[in-house]
Design a protein around this nucleic acid. Structure first.
Lengths: 231, 231
DNA sequence: TGTACATCAGTGAACGCGCGTTCACTGATGTAC
DNA sequence: TGTACATCAGTGAACGCGCGTTCACTGATGTAC
């Protein structure tokens, strides 16, 4: 990740076809700045160039403009997040275990680098952008696990497929994550415990939200009170 | 809300004790800019002053610096949100009805002015600030309703009080809200229906998360599958 | 193998701009006599 | 009631700064002969 360059000596010029490595260094430097400063305004083209050890105009050999650089950073973040989720799912066995593992990987990733997460999720992206495609990659993984849970009878099988359930779960996990990041002073108690509970709540809610005889709010209130009294 | 001033004639000077009204106009103008532009960078001290119809340095008669202005805007937003939640709760009867009404008011408020909501919730605030106090006001209202639901037997009575439940519900509702705002291109389907469902999922999850015999993930999976097979 | 040359990754200097903030000021408002 | 004066809300001009971006350039890398 780190790519600072303390020497002020002139940078070795990259061989002919090797522009991509400097491009990667630039993205890494932007992520470093984000992580070190904690706010997006610290990421200026000049600051990024200085961190990499090149001059400012060199950035423009690899990115059309600043926005393209920011987009590339978002894409990189979503790519890494997708990797983390993939690994977590691979290491777990059982559909619900996979789901929890992916959720935990997601939150851990976000809390480890809050500014990266904020940049990737809390800024309005454009539908066709690369980062949107990579967000889709994360989401597609989630959907696969949700589909397994549906097959296992844990979640209801929606005619629309696992899509709506997936969005509900993503919303829930994103909610905890982003509130933990932006309002850390709230009385969360033990963070890990809170996250685990949030995930469990979302899962139980998705599974049991259409309990029969609980269509209206009044019916739901009665249903829940009865159900709970049996515990 | 709107406070634009098309005349370029010199502004009437406020009478001696009336500085507060211009202060309010400045805050309203900042909110206008935020709503009209859709991004925070559009809110510069100069742009705000121009919108109000005063010169730039006049801002500094009412706010120490730009940050104090932004903080005041956040506080205003949370104040209005608290008002909306209070009204929603007052108009509903029944504890769970109140809870849903507050949730709906919260999301509607946020979606009506996404940039106001983003500024207030997606930026890391400082614990002691005024906007934190007003966020507490919103949260306190939620806690009161949650306590009523606990009394009605809908939610379990946590020894730690309704605090943890309240945070869980807030996280859930914030999750839908902020994801709807920042990723509008996702296949949400009917937005209102999605929001209602998200709220229901959170409520059902909070109510039934500690079902007996579902401590481990494997047990939970089995429990949910059995429970759902009875529908 | 040695030399002339084309390529193009990276440079150095500069551009115009909008920003937050400051300062000495102006002149209408309100008060004292 | 009329006038001199203090107050202070708002002004106009300017400050220094960092920003994104551009341009003509340099000089090491790689190729052709």
């Amino acid at each position: 990740m780190s790519s600072s360059r303390s020497t002020s000596s002139r940078r070795h010029r990259a061989p002919r076809g090797q522009g991509a490595s400097l491009r990667a260094e630039i993205i890494a430097a932007a992520k470093d700045l984000l992580a070190a400063s904690g706010h997006e305004e610290a990421v200026s083209v000049r600051a990024v160039a200085e961190r990499v050890g090149i001059t400012t105009p060199s950035i423009y050999m690899h990115f059309k403009d600043k926005q393209e650089l920011i987009d590339a950073v978002c894409a990189d973040v979503f790519g890494k997040l997708a990797d983390a989720m993939r690994q977590a799912a691979d290491e777990a066995s059982g559909s619900l275990e996979k789901l929890f593992a992916q959720g935990r990987a997601y939150v851990n990733f976000a809390l480890a680098q809050p500014e990266h997460y904020r940049l990737a999720t809390m800024v309005v992206g454009r539908p066709g952008s690369v980062d949107a495609a990579l967000a889709d990659d994360c989401f597609t993984q989630l959907l696969a696990t949700v589909a397994q849970c549906v097959d296992a009878g844990i979640f209801p099988s929606d005619p629309a497929g696992p899509l709506s359930l997936g969005l509900q779960l993503w919303s829930a996990v994103h909610g905890v994550t982003s509130l933990l990041i932006s309002k850390p002073w709230l009385p969360w108690g033990d963070t890990d415990a809170f996250i685990d509970r949030a995930t469990r709540i979302a899962v139980v809610g998705c599974a049991l939200a259409d309990a029969p005889g609980s269509a209206s709010v009044a019916e739901l209130a009665a249903y829940l009170a009865v159900e709970r009294s049996e515990y």
